[in-house]
């Protein structure tokens, strides 16, 4: 009977047609299939039930069972090791990234969530970030005086400071209008976010710097997870593994498509750094990791660096 089903409320803060939204829908489909209908996944997109700032507490209270928050949310939870993902130029490319997120280091980081009552299941990519503004961004001198929007993060704050900009914390939903009116001058985003929020319409220049990574973790309430029958858990794990590959491949595709579409739209001039400029960016941003070592932990940074092979 329907009431005997195990209900998993999966809440997230983005639209259903984003890579994360599609990944969640895929998980819903596969989870119900692989558990032979023992589980009913209810996906709540668009912060319908819980907003960005409250979903983590809602998970800990057991009001929802599953979330896919941005990795930047774990620092404020008291697990600052996750801030390693925000470090500039820490992953050379997707392969380097996946050697971490799909390997032991990823699991080691997840284990740090357990005494918060949280179990990490998978890492979902959003993509590598590019820098945008209303003036060319070739050298660090170009950042001087620019008000750059970031999400709350000590690492991103240090990153913008290292470039010479003025970091401004602002909610994602307010960014478009702030860019349009000039309250902030620029921001950093993976191309797909920039495109879906139409930020290319209000930014004249962008540099394809791929300087940082934006990703999510799919997490569950640990008590709920541990209480599931073993065969159900196995079914869900399989569903999660497949939807992770699905979500990641969509994310990558969408980023490529978005970049092409924005270039075609012509409202933004896209710039590729020369090798010398790229090295200058890396040099300017190198102190960020040192500055953040005490927060993140030297061992964590070392582990990520050696696993990713960079």
């Amino acid at each position: 009977a329907a009431q005997d089903k195990i209900i998993i409320k999966f809440s997230h803060v983005v639209a259903p047609d984003t890579p994360k939204g599609k990944g969640a829908a895929k998980f819903e489909e596969l989870a119900e299939k692989y558990t032979n209908g023992a589980v009913d996944v209810e996906v709540y997109p668009n912060s319908q039930l819980y907003k960005d700032k409250e979903e983590m507490e809602a998970l800990q209270l057991g009001a929802v069972q599953m979330l896919a928050p941005s990795l930047a949310k774990f620092g404020p939870l008291g697990v600052q090791a996750f801030e390693v993902f925000d470090l500039p130029y820490i992953f050379a490319d997707y392969d380097a990234l996946h050697r971490v997120t799909k390997g032991e280091v990823g699991q080691m980081l997840f284990s740090k969530l357990e005494d918060k009552g949280i179990k990490g299941l998978a890492y979902w990519d959003n993509g590598f970030k590019i820098m945008s503004a209303n003036s060319p961004l070739h050298t660090t001198d170009d950042f001087l005086g620019l008000k750059m929007r970031i999400q709350s993060s000590k690492v991103l704050e240090a990153e913008m400071n290292a470039l010479g900009a003025v970091p401004q914390v602002m909610a994602f939903s307010e960014v478009y209008q702030a860019l349009q009116t000039g309250v902030v001058d620029g921001t950093e985003n993976p191309p797909s976010n920039m495109y879906t929020q139409k930020m290319n319409e209000v930014q004249t220049h962008a540099t394809v710097s791929n300087h940082g990574y934006l990703g999510y973790a799919v997490i569950v309430n640990k008590q709920f997870w541990d209480g599931l029958p073993a065969e159900v858990r196995a079914g869900l794990e399989q569903a999660m593994a497949e939807s992770t590959d699905y979500a990641n491949s969509i994310a990558r595709e969408e980023n490529e498509k978005a970049l092409e579409a924005m270039k075609a739209a012509g409202t933004t001039e896209f710039y590729e750094l020369t090798p010398e400029e790229l090295q200058a960016w890396k040099d300017a941003l190198a102190p960020v990791a040192e500055e953040m070592t005490d927060r993140i932990g030297a061992d964590v940074i070392e582990a990520v660096k050696s696993a990713s092979g960079s």
Partner: peptide, 18 residues
């Protein structure tokens, strides 16, 4: 719905800059 979420919502309900 866990009744504790009411307390959470009472805080986060106005936790917005606008």
């Amino acid at each position: 719905v866990p009744i504790d979420t009411v307390a959470l919502k009472l805080f986060t309900g106005i936790e917005k800059f606008e």
